[in-house]
Amino acid sequence: MNETIETTQTAQPWRPRIVAFFCNWCTYTAADLAGVSRMKYAPNTRIIRVMCSGRIDPQFVLEALSEGADGVLIGGCHPGDCHYAEGNYKALRRFHLLRRMLIGMGIDEKRFRLEWISASEGDKVKTVINDMVEQLQQLGPLDIPARRKAWDVELEEAKAQVPRYEEFEEAAHV
């Protein structure tokens, strides 16, 4: 997928963006409940619905971070309450290994969070998101896309060393 899509974001002060993967039966429903109860919380989260926290592929987490999320939140049913019996345990096991890997790659542990939020815990959606936004605000941007651009500056410099390279690249992309 190579669409270039214009961003809707205008030049405002930086605010953290969280991608949240919520399971359909508990946490997504809890977020709906927070809405129905008109609880106000920080708007920085973008929620993606999956049927079960067991569906959350670690690749999704990495993709979200590498596409510019400042943090990723996983929400699932409490242990023992999974709609699919044990998907949340798989999510928990993956979470701990992925978390170690992210820390190893220099990503602060506060940027990746797993919470059990049952369908009745609308208030927990609110407190968890508010809390995470506050922590990310303190950490500042993760900003992998921009970093990647910065990494590639060194490549631009080298292009100059190859005679007529640009010409070829243009030709190659016609």
Partner: peptide, 27 residues
């Protein structure tokens, strides 16, 4: 539930309505 889909080490299990590609696009 999609647990097997998330786990398949060679990406050979897919899920209707929750395809990897659909979720990547959403992200």
């Amino acid at each position: 539930c999609g647990t097997c889909v998330a786990s398949c080490p060679s990406g050979s299990i897919r899920q209707h309505l929750f395809e990897d590609e659909e979720i990547y696009r959403e992200i």
